[in-house]
């Protein structure tokens, strides 16, 4: 968000892969974005190499507080392949016996 000065110093990073602060996430939540899927699309949280392993548990707690839903009822995003980064060349290279 353009009025967010949280990039200046004392960074409190929630998503290490995409360098996103907890303040940025909270600003979006305060503006009504209370869905992890939307946060992911708008902020890229959870879209880096670790695929949300670090930030998702923290963000769903924030969403739970904001929405009053228990953490277990906060919808997660879809777990798509691949689980870890893979070069396109490897995929294009086909299978071992091709």
């Amino acid at each position: 968000m353009s009025d967010c000065k949280c990039k200046d110093k004392d960074l409190n990073i929630v998503c290490r892969c995409e360098d996103i602060t907890i303040e940025e996430v909270r600003a979006y939540i305060d503006n009504g974005v209370t869905d992890l899927e939307q946060l992911k699309r708008m902020l890229r949280v959870g879209m880096g190499p670790c695929q949300g392993r670090t930030c998702t548990p923290i963000i769903i707690r924030e969403l739970s507080v904001a929405t009053g839903k228990p953490v277990g009822e906060v919808p997660l995003t879809t777990f798509r392949p691949p689980t870890s980064p893979v070069k396109l060349g490897v995929l294009a290279g086909g299978e071992e016996d091709d």
Partner: peptide, 8 residues
Amino acid sequence: NLMFPNND
């Protein structure tokens, strides 16, 4: 992970 200023 844990949230606190300068955790990076």
